[in-house]
């Protein structure tokens, strides 16, 4: 499988997915008007990765902002990972939030409540 490397823009995050290493990072801002289109390549790649995942899959979410249009797509990404976690690979989601950004911490906890994958909440000091 090929790596995915998408450069960030003011409205979309940097995405790095390395299936060979089992590493996924989503970093930056995710506030596009139409997010389905943006997240589709990643959702498709995770679907393919699920057929033969690495023993461990390590996911880093380092978002500064995301809109509600993205929140559904991020859930889709996590649902793919949930399936991979249940089938074969041990998945960990590292959810980063900036110190005193309670809204971003709470957003992570919302996903944690919905998705059956271990979450690690990681505070980034300013």
């Amino acid at each position: 499988m090929e790596n995915i490397e998408i450069e960030g823009t003011p409205k979309t995050p940097t995405i790095k997915f390395n299936p060979g290493e089992g590493h996924l990072t989503i970093q930056g801002r995710s506030i596009p008007e139409n997010s389905i289109e943006f997240y589709k390549p990643l959702v498709d790649a995770l679907e393919a990765y699920g057929a033969s995942p690495k023993e461990k899959t390590n996911v880093n979410i380092v978002l500064e902002y995301f809109n509600t249009s993205s929140s559904k797509c991020i859930l889709d990404v996590f649902k793919k990972l949930e399936k991979i976690n249940a089938d074969s690979s041990g998945v960990t989601i590292n959810w980063h939030y900036e110190e005193d950004d309670e809204d971003m911490l709470e957003a992570g906890e919302d996903y944690q409540a919905i998705i059956n994958i271990p979450f690690k909440m990681i505070e980034i000091e300013e």
């Binding site: 509600t68 249009s69 929140s71 919905i114």
Partner: peptide, 19 residues
């Protein structure tokens, strides 16, 4: 919020009523 996020229908354009 969690209920709509998890069960709500996603429209083509938006977050399906989450905004």
């Amino acid at each position: 919020y969690k209920e709509v996020l998890n069960n709500g229908m996603m429209s083509d354009k938006g977050g399906g009523g989450l905004g």
